[in-house]
Simulated assay, not measured.
Amino acid sequence: MREFLAALSDLGDVAEITREVNTHLEIGAIIRRRHEKFAPVLVFSNIRHHARYRVVGAPLSYSSLPKARMARIAMTLGLDPTTPGTEIVQTLAKTTKLPPVPLVIVEDGPVHENILLGDEVDLLKIPTPLIHFGDGGRFFNSLGFWVVRSPDGK
């Protein structure tokens, strides 16, 4: 994620929010509004009651680059930021036939910076935003997505 944000920053597609923000609806509202305006990826670095943490908002939404709206998705696949959507879909389709990426176990690195064991484990310490009023709770989502059936069954 750090490398991805650095690459987006090199393109001018990242904005850091240093003003204090709250995980209760505020971060979600700011992300939503900026997403609708095709703004750069937001990195919140001053989160009330969560020192040392950062929250990244909508890193895979449309890019702020007018001639490369699909840049973020393209870059996650190792493609040029200007790759058109049709080529991105073709690349994704080809990956279903590739062998899995081999597991790499590392002894040290950024992934080891935050380790909590036993009684230290408390998921409420992590600044997980409540995104929308009426949501069932604060949900973790690391660049994932869901495909779900709508209430009418379609």
Rank of each mutant, 00 (worst) to 15 (best):
R2G: 07
A6H: 06
L8W: 03
G12T: 06
V14D: 10
A15V: 02
E16N: 05
T18N: 02
T18S: 05
V21Y: 08
N22F: 15
N22T: 15
G28P: 04
G28E: 07
I31K: 02
R33Y: 03
R33F: 04
H35C: 02
H35Y: 07
K37P: 01
K37Q: 15
K37E: 15
P40G: 13
V43I: 15
H50T: 04
R52W: 10
Y53P: 04
V55A: 15
V55H: 15
V55F: 15
V56G: 03
P59N: 12
L60E: 00
S61Y: 13
Y62H: 05
L65S: 06
A68P: 02
A68T: 01
A68W: 10
A68N: 03
A71H: 09
R72N: 03
I73Y: 04
A74H: 10
M75W: 10
G78V: 05
G78R: 09
L79N: 09
P84G: 06
P84V: 10
T86C: 06
E87S: 03
I88K: 07
I88E: 13
V89D: 11
T91M: 02
A93G: 11
T95G: 01
P99A: 08
I105P: 00
E107T: 04
G109T: 07
G109V: 09
P110R: 07
V111I: 09
E113N: 14
N114W: 15
I115Q: 11
L116K: 14
L117P: 02
E120K: 00
E120H: 01
K125I: 04
L130V: 15
F133Q: 03
D135H: 04
F139W: 07
F140L: 12
F140A: 02
N141A: 04
N141V: 00
N141S: 14
S142I: 01
L143I: 02
F145G: 11
P151C: 14
D152H: 07
G153Y: 01
G153N: 01
G153S: 00
K154W: 00
